[in-house]
């Protein structure tokens, strides 16, 4: 399994239900989009910093985690300053910075399991709207999580094998075998999923499908 970005802790945010945090973040991002006053946005950045710090992370850790986005913001700010003017640049940087800090606070305090549960709950109305099949969608996402480490390892192995033959720079030498393997694997994987009774028959959950009895403990 890929390690999630969430970190353990017992802060207020950690204990807040995931759905509430997500809704709050979406609301904050929307509201901030319409704020143009640099002072208000600076206040938002402060709120963001407080939120991020409240998760238990030190400022140093926050700085490390947000190094990448900070760089992008800096570049964006410079570009805006050069192409438009300083005020716009400041407003943009402050707005995006505030949102990034708030988003970071949510990400760090919400586990993948919690988010998966929210996702599965969101699948149900989507299913009623005919957009997708909830159990198939959920399985697809879980399968991807399951296979990322394996496929990544295979990619590294292919790279290593190619390097031994002097082909390490070749994109084709990596991608072609990787893709051929997954197409072949998909056949057997699909058979295995079918063999294990997927998809579940939702009309009789809780009942043993063969005997139609409620399962008894041995």
């Amino acid at each position: 399994m890929i390690a999630s970005l969430a970190r353990p802790g017992a802060s207020l945010l950690h204990r807040t239900p995931a759905a509430r945090k997500l809704a709050g973040l979406a609301l904050a991002a929307t509201v901030l989009f319409f704020v143009e006053d640099a002072r208000l946005l600076a206040g938002a950045v402060l709120v963001g910093l407080v939120a991020a710090r409240s998760t238990g992370a030190t400022f140093a850790a926050i700085g490390r985690d947000l190094k990448g986005p900070a760089l992008v913001l800096a570049v964006l700010g410079l570009v805006d300053w050069w192409l438009i003017d300083g005020t716009t640049a400041l407003v943009v940087v402050l707005r995006l910075g505030a949102i990034a800090l708030l988003a970071h606070a949510v990400t760090v305090t919400t586990t993948t399991a919690e988010l998966t549960e929210v996702m599965e709950r969101l699948f149900l109305p989507a299913e009623r709207l005919g957009l997708l099949d909830a159990s198939r969608a959920a399985l697809t996402v879980t399968l991807a999580i399951r296979f990322v480490p394996l496929i990544t390892q295979e990619a590294r192995e292919i790279r290593a094998a190619q390097a031994a033959r002097g082909l390490e720079g070749s994109i084709l030498a990596l991608a072609v075998p990787l893709l051929v393997r997954i197409v072949v694997r998909a056949e057997t994987l699909a058979d295995a999923i079918d063999a294990r009774g997927f998809p579940p028959d939702r009309s009789s959950s809780g009942r043993d499908q063969e005997t139609n009895e409620r399962p008894r403990s041995p």
Partner: peptide, 26 residues
């Protein structure tokens, strides 16, 4: 690797059982 479907062992074992409608306790 062609038939293990879930990232964690206990979850994978539960997969077939869930599909056939067993209760969580069972």
């Amino acid at each position: 690797d062609d038939q293990i479907v879930m990232p964690i062992v206990a979850e994978d074992l539960a997969f077939g059982l869930k599909n056939h409608g067993f209760s969580r306790a069972e």
